[in-house]
Design a protein around this nucleic acid. Structure first.
Lengths: 190, 190
DNA sequence: ACATATCTAGGACATTTGTCCTAATTTCTG
DNA sequence: CAGAAATTAGGACAAATGTCCTAGATATGT
């Protein structure tokens, strides 16, 4: 198999496992098993566990950036924010089982006092800046940044509670509440 | 040392370590070192790691119940809810470093597929039911339960974002926003 | 087609993990 | 005070961890 293919496969499986089982709880053996390669082969592609973590974070950063760009392409600001809110519904099953991938990873890395924590939080920054742009486009001026952070926090809270209780009704109700909030906030301007 | 004293000390240190470093990342050796006893002695008090986890959860449950009772004793419903909101300020430093102890533990246990996950979530239930009572007392009727869950989710989101960015300004702004929300919600009734 | 670089498997390694055992010490009880 | 019970220390144990090494297989470039 070509280099990039195996590397990519490792990153993909590691990404999944870090999300579903946590970074600390995922061992080299777990990833190697999931990929179907030997443990030894591993070190040809990644020379340490932190190396894989870096790659997984990179992967998530570019995946997120691509998603935001695709929303930029064919939507209006308010619809874009709605797309963000509705990630909670799109990924409902996984979120109820494992929470938000971004929030849970940064939380875990904070506890581990891991150097990569701030890099993991950059995924949040991607969303935050993008959301700030959207609120700006809607004419919210200086408020835009705090609206973006507020929305990010609301989503995180929903993810935490939805997974704690595995409660779909709560999740849906809160998504609706967020959509209402967006309506209120965007119509308050005129 | 008497049985209860050592047991208590172990629980206390385990509680702290689980919070600050995570459950999985905390080893027996870590706890034993923190308490200052030998690893062997450990198994006289707790026969497995899950045993300590159970004890720590019990501890948190009763600690939480006691706190809520103390608020019941000398406050009015709205002031009680305000006390809840202001936990975020009271425990600001720890929350910015390690997130919310309840949210982060349930999240981790969900990923580990751990049997104790639902018991850990009972701390949320304590808060939820108590908050529901307060909203009831304020005359919110059937809305009370979802208001309680909403407030719980908002707090969780704030804890996640505050620790992701270690951002005190955000935390304070969002607490103020929550206080405003409480005002709006409670005055909307008349 | 051959030399070179890349990839792969399998195992070695020291360390750490959770768990358990034994023997000594302390504390309690009659 | 003597005997029983509870507590403690220290180490043994297998399994798992992250890391590294070697030797064979595969692919690549000329």
């Amino acid at each position: 198999m070509t280099r990039t293919k195996t590397r990519d496969l490792i990153e993909e499986k590691a990404d999944d496992l870090f999300y579903e089982n946590g970074f600390e709880a995922t061992s080299f053996a777990d990833i190697a098993d999931a990929v179907g390669i030997s443990r030894g082969n591993f070190y040809h592609h990644f020379k340490s566990k932190d190396d894989i973590l870096d790659a997984v974070i990179d992967r998530r950063l570019s995946k997120t950036a691509r998603m935001l760009e695709s929303w930029d392409a064919d939507k209006l600001p308010k619809a874009r924010i709605l797309s963000f809110i509705r990630i909670l519904l799109t990924n409902q099953t996984k979120i109820m089982a494992f929470g938000c991938p971004v929030g849970t990873l940064t939380t875990e890395l904070a506890k581990l006092d891991h150097i990569a924590q701030s890099r993991a939080a950059e995924v949040f920054t991607l969303f935050r800046d993008w959301l700030t742009d959207q609120f700006h486009a809607l004419g919210h001026g200086d408020e835009s940044a705090s609206l973006a952070l507020h929305l990010l926090g609301r989503s995180q809270g929903i993810a935490v509670m939805a997974s704690a209780y595995r409660d779909e009704t709560y999740l849906r109700a809160e998504v609706t509440a967020l959509e209402d909030w967006l309506d209120t906030v965007t119509t308050k301007l005129r």
